[in-house]
Amino acid sequence: MKTGILITVAGAFLMTIVSCKNDATQKIKTENVEIAAKRDAKSTELPIMTFSITDHDFGVINEGDIVEHSFTFTNTGKTPLLIVSAKGSCGCTVPEWPKEPIAPGASGTLLVSFNSNGKPNMQNKQVTITTNTKKGKEILKIKAMVTPKNKVKA
């Protein structure tokens, strides 16, 4: 019985050694390597979102005013730019962005609205843009000096 087990184990060991003689690199087709190299080179090409400005100062405004500014950008990369989302740092800052892809070399605008109601004094807000760029996020900043409403004394 022990001899039978020993012969089975030895046979399995010999089959393992014999079956591993084939060199896997001989099975690789050079045309597939070239295709994979081209594909991988393109995967590193990402869009680049280039803004003319990233900060805007509304100056002095009155509390309750709703002001807007359009930020202009260009896709200076080699692949289409996708804006996944844009979020203001609070509910008073609302961005609107293009939902369709921006082709390489094309430009777009991102409109930011700021509602100053209930926001007296100096206000600094930002919009975080989630994109398919290398950084993945872009930041726009706005600020305004909000003149408070006159309070009615009772």
Rank of each mutant, 00 (worst) to 15 (best):
T109C: 02
G77M: 12
T133R: 03
M1C: 03
T74N: 09
I139K: 14
M145Y: 15
T30A: 12
V152H: 04
N150S: 07
T109Q: 08
N115T: 08
S52L: 05
V9P: 02
T133S: 07
P95Y: 14
E100K: 08
T72D: 12
K42Q: 12
L82W: 07
G88C: 05
I142L: 09
K143I: 00
T44I: 12
A10Y: 10
N150W: 03
K137N: 08
I7A: 13
G136V: 00
S52H: 05
E45V: 04
S116I: 08
F73M: 07
L111K: 12
V60Q: 01
T131Y: 03
V18C: 07
E34Y: 06
K135V: 00
W97S: 06
C90G: 10
V84D: 15
G64A: 04
L6P: 02
A86P: 10
K151V: 15
V33K: 01
G136F: 01
A144R: 09
D65G: 06
S70D: 15
I142T: 14
N22L: 02
R39K: 11
C20F: 10
A154S: 01
Q123K: 11
T147A: 14
K137A: 03
A37H: 01
I17Y: 08
A86Q: 05
I53N: 03
V84H: 14
G118F: 11
M15K: 06
T74V: 14
V67W: 04
I129N: 09
H69M: 05
Q26P: 00
N62Y: 03
T109R: 06
K153L: 15
N62W: 00
G77C: 13
N32R: 05
E63P: 02
G118C: 09
K125N: 15
Q123A: 10
S19H: 04
K2S: 06
K135F: 02
I28T: 11
F58Y: 09
Q26H: 02
I129M: 05
K143V: 00
P80V: 00
E45W: 05
A36W: 05
T72N: 11
K78Y: 03
H69V: 09
V112W: 05
A154W: 02
V127R: 14
V60P: 01
L110Q: 02
C92R: 08
T79I: 03
N62C: 00
N115Y: 05
N75T: 11
T76L: 04
V84A: 14
